[in-house]
Design a protein around this nucleic acid. Structure first.
Length: 420
RNA sequence: GGAGAGGUGGCCGAGUUGGUUGAAGGCGCCUGACUCGAAAUCAGGUGUACGGCAAACCCGUACCGGGGGUUCGAAUCCCUCCCUCUCCGCCA
């Protein structure tokens, strides 16, 4: 959520910044509703004050005087209630607008409307090329008996994956490898969270109210399957005032991620690219406002290190204003090279939310004794999406004989050099 | 699932015959005194948001888990939802 105060105090600037994301965007509705709210609020304040003053006289005076006063106050009371009802409606509308308004892109974010306008910041590694006739991960995985999409469909419908044998072990190895790397090399604290969360948590990180269609909801309890560990890890500190010593903080978490992928029917229907459940290791930072830019750079580099260790070529892309996610003020996507599909594919998305999520989730910290609490800055990124990593490994490390070489870094976990 | 207890300020904790209670007390924190300095001690101060004003150590309003109701007036009464805890049942 944006800072209402900032929007009201800097209307032109705020609008200009929002338009980097959407040229037709406007805060007019906010200004309008705030004006109405202020008018009603002032009336309410004055009336309430008068009412309180008069009420003090209720304890004394003769019976007739009291009765007359009571009648007068009764009238005021209904008027107050009427104003409160109007205020409630206005505030609900304002809050609805604020909760569905995306974050403002940072000034450094590239201009642009779509993916095409994203800026490639750097590329690492040599994009692999196969001399032989390489096959895609679906065909390869099924031939090796490590992926079974048919069985998954029988169980859960299309868009699910079932791993078997060394395929399942590869997933598990990647989980452990990534968590070990982040905890041992990058200073993260590992957390294992619930995978089902309350509505408030989904509001806090911004999945709700706007993107409810993409979430799996458990009807009788009004709970949600998490679409990413970002939700439980960030909301872990919801409504807390943290001690200065707790910020900055870094957490990593493994979790399955559940996504309905509403609206993406027909896209990437085959294989592990886009599924309703995938596993991911997520990185979350809680930073001070002063430290969040640097934290963002570190966050990306931590995700990059996973790809470096696995020997997978990738590039880092600075998303343009039009391509930014709802809550992000800036976002780096890491795209891995897929030699069979011959394209770059997003495998991590690292965003700085500034205080956007913290304001929604009410996560603050006290900079020093006696000082006022401030909102923290939150950041998160995949480190990495495991399904897509499996996909990349199968595409990159496959051999002419149909086997797959296990990347060096995973061998201690896989306890084999080759799959097949 | 059944029975009961409770949710108050940064924290702990009073306050439920409704009325100068934003809310006693303690801790913490800030300022001053004492001290070479610190601790201890003493004195004072210490919530947030919004509105008014050029501004304010000024005035006002709201906030005692969320929402609704009763009343001239509610932290205090009623309803409802959420959460926490205890006992019983069930269970990996």
């Amino acid at each position: 959520m944006l800072d209402l105060r900032y929007i009201l105090d800097n209307p032109e600037e705020a609008t200009a910044r929002l338009r980097k994301r959407d040229p037709s965007a406007t805060f007019d509705r906010v200004f309008e509703l705030d004006g109405e709210r202020r008018a009603v609020l002032t009336q309410h304040n004055e009336l309430r004050h008068a009412q309180k003053e008069l009420s003090k006289g209720m304890g004394s005076g003769d019976k007739e005087a009291q009765a007359a006063l009571r009648e007068r106050l009764k009238g005021m009371s209904t008027e107050v209630k009427d104003l409160e009802a109007r205020l409630k409606v206005i505030e609900e509308q304002l809050s609805e607008v604020m909760l569905t308004t995306p974050n403002l892109p940072q000034p450094v974010v590239p201009e642009g409307r779509s993916e095409e306008d994203n800026v490639v910041l750097r590329t690492w590694g040599e994009p692999a090329e196969h001399a032989f006739d390489a096959v895609d991960h679906v065909a390869l995985g099924e031939k090796l008996g490590i992926l079974d999409f048919e069985a998954a469909a029988r169980l859960s419908g299309s868009g699910f994956a079932l791993y078997r044998g060394l395929g399942a072990r590869l997933e598990r190895s990647l989980q452990s490898f990534m968590l070990d790397l982040h905890t041992e090399q990058h200073g993260y604290t590992e957390v294992l969270t619930p995978f089902i969360v309350r509505r408030d948590a989904m509001m806090g990180t911004g999945q709700l109210p706007k993107f409810g269609d993409d979430a799996y909801r458990i009807e009788p309890d009004d709970l949600f399957l998490i679409p990413t560990a970002e939700v439980p890890v960030t909301n872990m500190w919801r409504e807390q005032i943290l001690d200065a010593s707790q910020v900055p903080a870094r957490f990593c978490a493994f979790s399955p991620c559940f996504r309905r992928e509403a609206g993406s029917y027909g896209r990437d229907v085959k294989g592990l690219t886009r599924v309703h459940q995938f596993q991911k290791v997520e990185l979350v930072h809680f930073a001070t406002p002063e430290g969040s830019q640097e934290a963002h750079e570190q966050l990306v580099s931590h995700a990059e290190n996973v790809l470096k260790a696995l020997g997978l070529a990738y590039r880092v892309v600075d998303l343009c204003g039009g391509d930014l996610g709802f809550g992000a003020s800036r976002c780096y996507d890491i795209e891995v090279w897929l030699p069979v599909q011959k394209r770059w594919r997003e495998i991590s998305s690292c965003s700085n939310f500034l205080d956007f999520q913290a304001r929604r989730a009410d996560i603050r910290y006290r900079p020093g004794p006696g000082e006022k609490p401030r909102y923290v800055h939150t950041l998160n990124g995949s480190g990495l999406a495991i399904g897509r990593t499996v996909m990349a490994i199968l595409e990159v490390y496959q051999n002419a004989d149909g086997t797959v070489t296990v990347p060096e870094a995973l061998r201690p976990y896989m306890r084999t050099d080759v799959i097949g």
